[in-house]
Amino acid sequence: MSHYSDLISQFLWHLPVNWTPLAQTVSDPNLMGQIQKSWSHFIQTGQVWALLIGLVIGYIIRNLTSYG
């Protein structure tokens, strides 16, 4: 197991410095504004009703199919 972890650490050590696939550039740092905009869109489009109906139907189906 030690040999395997040594190979992985050597592989990770030799990665190029500019290899950053997870890095992102932030174009709008206003996080609370984005959350507020998304929530208002969620409410205005009626998706909240689909969520609530789905939760109720799922709860009913779970209770009908459970034993005991």
Rank of each mutant, 00 (worst) to 15 (best):
L55K: 06
M32P: 00
T20G: 04
S27C: 04
L51V: 12
I43Y: 06
H41F: 07
M32G: 04
P21K: 01
S40H: 09
S38R: 15
G33H: 07
F42Q: 01
F42R: 03
T20P: 05
S38Y: 15
L51E: 09
W49C: 03
V56R: 01
Q34I: 04
L55D: 08
A23G: 06
H14M: 09
H14I: 04
I35P: 00
T20H: 14
G33W: 06
P16W: 03
P29S: 13
S38N: 14
Q44V: 06
P29A: 15
V17T: 15
V48H: 11
I53D: 14
Q34L: 10
I35D: 00
V17W: 12
L15A: 01
P21A: 02
G54I: 01
N30A: 13
W19T: 00
S27E: 12
S40R: 11
V17A: 14
Q44P: 00
K37P: 01
K37F: 11
P16E: 02
A50C: 04
T25G: 01
N30W: 04
V56D: 03
Q47K: 13
Q34S: 10
S40Q: 14
L22Q: 09
N30D: 15
L55R: 08
G46C: 02
L52N: 06
L52P: 01
I53V: 14
V26R: 07
H14V: 05
Q34P: 00
H14T: 08
G46N: 02
V48I: 08
Q44C: 01
S27R: 13
G33P: 09
G46D: 01
P21C: 02
V26N: 08
M32T: 12
P29D: 12
K37E: 13
A50D: 12
S38A: 15
M32Q: 13
V17Q: 15
L51G: 00
L15R: 09
Q44N: 11
L52G: 00
Q24C: 08
F42D: 00
A23D: 13
V48S: 02
Q34V: 01
S40C: 00
L22I: 02
I43K: 12
V56S: 02
H41L: 10
T45R: 14
V17I: 13
G54K: 04
A50Q: 14
F42S: 02
G54W: 05
L31E: 10
W39G: 00
V48K: 05
A50K: 14
V48T: 01
Q34F: 05
N30Y: 07
Q24S: 09
Q47Y: 04
G46A: 03
P21V: 01
Q47T: 00
I53P: 00
K37W: 09
S40M: 08
L52C: 06
P29T: 10
T20M: 12
